[in-house]
Design a binder for these strands. Structure first.
Length: 588
RNA sequence: GCACCCGUAGCUCAAUUGGAUAGAGCGUCUGGCUACGAACCAGAAGGCUAGGGGUUCAAGUCCCUUCGGGUGCACCA
């Protein structure tokens, strides 16, 4: 029996063929709309007959019955189906078809081949613009979501066959550097700098900022430092470089914990010499005009941006983030040949990106270029229980370094409770995976658009839709194989497996074959929570199976088929968690 | 003032973009370890989807409106 990776998509195609075969009027306009179904109704359901029939004054049930009568032999072999309700077609996979899918998808490579076979992004080049902190400041909780969500999306796109370019668009060219350099020259504490350069730069910024606030003469001096820096003064450039280097190495420690590795770190300074071309082209195209001394773009067709300007050059002649973001688009198209760009940013920047996305197509059209697809992947704010932006008690931003350290400490305490018998070094290693994974997963599991309430108890919790629950399922499966001295997915382990039979076995197999749907939903909609939800349900279905049917039974064919289910569950859980950016464990 | 986002069980969140009886977890209650990890499982209770109107075979989802919350709006990104 031949089975494809994405069964829903294959049913969709089969129904379209059937529409032609049974001579439906306007058959080419028929969209079957096959989706995974509530288990009460089967494995997949086609909803499209209703709308199609209604619009042509046909009886939906009659149309559905006609379609079903001419379904291809391949579909009939794999599925049972019925016409139900007002005109739904329900499909239920036969056990042999479930088994065939599981046999055909026994490795990560097989899953990846399936995932990229029909994916729209396969072969395309996508730049993912995420994380993007400012230098001279430590990363704080506000930087968490972009990093975590961006990394997951980058992995998902790559798994679907896209060429992915991870670009950390750091803020390394702002006005803050004048104040830092001013303070660096006067108030640097060598010992503190040696201990943690970034913390010292952060302190120097506060010193410089306060001094400039208090004394206009200082402000002037700081501005002079900035002018010197921008004019290429070697001393100031050296200080600026030092700030950048120490910032990047501090960022890298966080990225290492989160499993993030960028291909490029091209910050605002990189585009410093590329903005003049932007001013010129936008002006020549008639898009940019002078207003109140600034160079701005209006969009007359838009209700708000007809009057709310997109400022691409400040009235003092300096670039701002609109200038550099425009230059960045051009670079990514010209240099990386990007099909599109994902901007993983806080939803408060919506206006800016709406304006950017309105400007780029007009600009590219005027200059005879093909505009890339620009997509805003926006996310809500991280808040406390009261719904206010998360801060420390003293009102500062919570440092990411400290947040991750606390997550590990909480996980370590938990591992001590549950698995005191493991060596301490292993407990620490486990705590690192569980702690950081919990933070990542709690963020990813929720629909990114909404604000996100940060709560340790919910996050590090052992049950519910959490990282620990999923990691536990993974560890338990590894444990089965370890006890039996077998390798997951090994040919010998699964040889002679009999057909799937018990309700728990079948339920687990049904859940496994729906991985492609979750993968597709998460990737095309750029919403990792669809994958999280799926993996959580898979882990739950596995636990039910594990409780209902003993794996290590004496009956060899039964044991082999249950080991096969264990191995596929493990494969999909580990693949899925890896796509989300989480590490997994063999013991915990 | 203008614009955008949001309001789902006591709490935290889903609902495959208009599909069938709105689902999970936490908390509460009842059961299950001399079987492979109980960090688990089986079950119960809990809802006028903020209120009102509309669109259609079908609305938590789309349109209008009221109320409540959040965010953005001339040079910080």
């Amino acid at each position: 029996m031949h089975v494809v990776f994405n069964l829903a998509a294959s049913l969709d195609a089969a129904l379209q063929q059937a529409a032609v075969a049974c001579g439906l009027p306007e058959a080419s306009a028929f969209a079957p709309e096959v989706r995974t179904a509530d288990p009460r109704h089967g494995d997949y359901q086609a909803n499209g007959v209703l709308g199609f029939a209604k619009a042509r004054k046909l009886n939906p049930r009659t149309v559905a019955t006609q379609l079903v009568a001419v379904l291809s032999p391949a579909v009939c072999e794999s599925f049972d189906f019925t016409v139900a309700g007002p005109g739904f077609i329900n499909f239920t996979l036969r056990p042999a078809a479930l088994r065939a899918w599981l046999d055909a998808h026994s490795s990560r490579d097989a899953l990846a081949r399936g995932g990229s076979a029909a994916a729209p992004v396969a072969g395309q080049t996508w730049v993912v613009d995420y994380s993007s902190p400012n230098t001279a400041k430590q990363m704080h909780v506000g930087h968490l979501r972009s990093a975590v969500i961006g990394e997951a999306l980058a992995r998902l796109l790559a798994f679907s066959g896209a060429r992915v370019i991870r670009d950390n668009h750091i803020g390394d060219w702002g006005t803050q550097f004048g104040k830092i350099i001013w303070a660096y020259r006067r108030h640097l504490e060598e010992a503190a700098f040696a201990r943690d350069p970034l913390e010292e730069f952060e302190r120097l910024y506060k010193v410089g900022h306060a001094a400039a606030e208090a004394d206009p003469a200082v402000l002037k001096e700081a501005q002079q430092e900035l002018v010197k820096l921008q004019a290429g003064d070697p001393d100031n450039l050296a200080i600026w470089k030092k700030i950048g280097d120490s910032s990047l190495s501090a960022f890298q420690q966080i990225y290492d914990q989160l499993g993030i590795r960028f291909d490029h770190t091209l910050g605002e300074s990189f585009y410093n010499d590329k903005v003049a071309q932007i001013y010129r082209e936008l002006t020549d195209a008639g898009l940019a005009t002078e207003s109140q001394g600034a160079l701005v773009v209006f969009h007359p067709e838009h209700p708000r941006f007809a009057t709310q300007p997109f400022i691409i050059r400040k009235s003092d002649g300096a670039a701002n983030y609109a200038s550099t973001d425009l230059a960045t688009v051009l670079y990514r198209v010209g240099h990386f040949h990007a099909t599109g760009v994902l901007y993983v940013v806080d939803s408060r920047q919506r206006d800016h990106f709406d304006q950017l996305f309105l400007t780029v197509p007009k600009w590219f059209a005027h200059t005879g270029r093909t505009a890339p697809e620009l997509k805003l992947v926006e996310f809500g704010t991280v808040t406390d229980a009261a719904g206010k932006p998360l801060k420390t008690k003293s009102g500062d931003n919570i440092k990411l370094k400290e947040l991750l350290a606390e997550a590990e400490a909480r996980a370590f305490a938990l591992v001590g409770e549950r698995s005191a018998e493991l060596p301490e070094a292993e407990r620490h290693a486990i705590a690192a995976v569980v702690g950081v994974g919990s933070v990542q997963y709690a963020d990813l599991a929720q629909n990114r658009s909404s604000d996100y309430i940060f709560a340790w108890d919910k996050m590090i919790s052992l049950d519910g839709n959490t990282a620990a629950y999923l990691l536990y399922a993974v560890a338990r499966i590894h444990s089965i194989f370890r006890k039996l001295g077998l390798t997951p997915g090994g040919n010998a382990t699964e040889a002679g497996a009999s057909g799937l039979e018990t309700p728990a076995e079948l339920a687990l197999a049904r859940q496994l074959v729906k991985f492609p749907d979750a993968l597709q939903a998460a990737t095309t909609q750029l919403r990792p929570h669809f994958l999280c939800l799926y993996l959580y349900e898979l882990a739950g279905t596995f636990s039910a199976f594990y409780n209902a049917d003993k794996v290590a039974v004496d009956d060899a064919p039964v044991r082999a088929r249950r080991l096969l289910l264990c191995a596929r569950t493990l494969l999909i859980l580990e693949t899925g968690l890896d796509l989300l950016g989480l590490k997994t464990l063999q013991r915990m």
